[in-house]
Design a protein around this nucleic acid. Sequence first.
RNA 1: GCGCGGAUGCCCGAGCGGCCUAAGGGAGUGGCCUGCAAAGCCAUGAUUCGCGGGUUCAAAUCCCGCUCCGCGCUCCA
Length: 452
Amino acid sequence: MIRLYDSATKEVVPLEQRDDGKVSIYVCGPTVYGPPHIGHGRSVLVYDILRRYLMWLGLDVTFVSNITDIDDKIINRANREERQWSDIATKCESVWWQAMDRLDALRPDKTPRATEYVDQMVQLIADLVDAGKAYETTDGVYLSVEEIDGYGLLAQQSLEDLRAGGGERELVGVEKRHTADFALWKVSKPDEPSWPSPWGDGRPGWHTECVVMSLDLIGEGFDLHTGGLDLMFPHHENERAQAVALGKPFARHWMHHGFVELEGEKMSKSLGNVHNLLDLTDEYDPRAYRLLVLQSHYRSPMELTDESLGHALAAMDRLDAFARRTAELDGEADPEVLEQFRQAMDNDLDTAKALDLLFRAVRDANTALDSDDRDAAAAATGAAHQIAGALGLRLGGEEADVPDEIMALARERGQARTDKDFALADSLRDQITAAGWSIEDSSDGPVLTPVK
RNA sequence: GCGCGGAUGCCCGAGCGGCCUAAGGGAGUGGCCUGCAAAGCCAUGAUUCGCGGGUUCAAAUCCCGCUCCGCGCUCCA
């Protein structure tokens, strides 16, 4: 069984499943108020890789990722730009999916939107109030964290230390009983979007959204809850607190991934060094980013530079060249390699090791082909394709349609080579190159590929 | 201030007590192959793992201190 680091226990433990053969995963999705940045990209890729691997193992995976389509940030932007908040949410959501598609991430099985769940959120908050775990103030409803067993589990800090805090805490909710108490319901100001509730018209707090949606769609005691390191506290802590307060079993396992860094600095909006994910995928083959994500461990910080992206691109070229060369081969994947792959992945998603195995398989296939051992080549090739597939790494790129004029030049060059007129052949090759194509002479004739 | 994590070759990054004379990728160099290339293959590269102590028969891996970096304690993947 796959073993993963659990942020709650700080140990690598088997991912126990609630139901045999099935895995339920809830990933905290984006708040749609702006374009996704490369940090979102890593998040999406990490969990896409996890999901594909579990599916490759033959498990029945239910993957839920929400869209937070109502939030202060959306409202603020709407006010600033004098637009409808819902207009911003809709536009940003479509851009989000566009970016995800470019990364070749599988769409979630379900994508609940917060606004579709307001009734259920109101119900949950009412239950918390009835249970004496939440209280009403003039600006909303708050959860009393002192009432929660084990609050601070994910924060890894005592309530006392949390209270001591950094000091820049915003002075919202001055009626709060404890600084760590958080809003379940926010009474809205005039002109703000609102929904009716027993505590006045308003909107749900962020932390309430994810508990309600996860429990509704994958149920109590679901298997895995994931997100970025920054969501551990307070967001996940607070989701859990609500479930605990109502005696509902929540996520059995917590997984958090590390940040993308740009030259040693965390990339965040406040630093202004945001790299738009769509810009990244415009400029680079998105597979290069996936490769980089695979190369580093999901919990480690990851450095992202033009240089590292360039290296990844070169590595992709190597994989693509391999795929082209082995396109005709067909055979059973080497079971020993697959077993090693499984062991690596089961060990807290050791994707770096998995890539190691992939590249070794590629080299083995090439070597076997060089010595005309087609059986060995086919076994290694099969393993390479299995691994790449399980990691969501598409090899070979698209079959390029070679334009007639390029084909004509290639044919002319072939004739020139047969005639041993190498000066002409070389000048034809120069023309082909200038037109944006590369030509390789393989044993099966020339291979034309567009230069990216 | 409190809590958590990181520092490995030219670059990115695995490894987390002996199998490390430290994966894999990229870049470099030399060779094989090729009409020449490209692709591919082979070879080469850290006597060393931020710094200083310590534990151990044995440490990149454990402990202590220091330096630098990141994350959380506030909205954030």
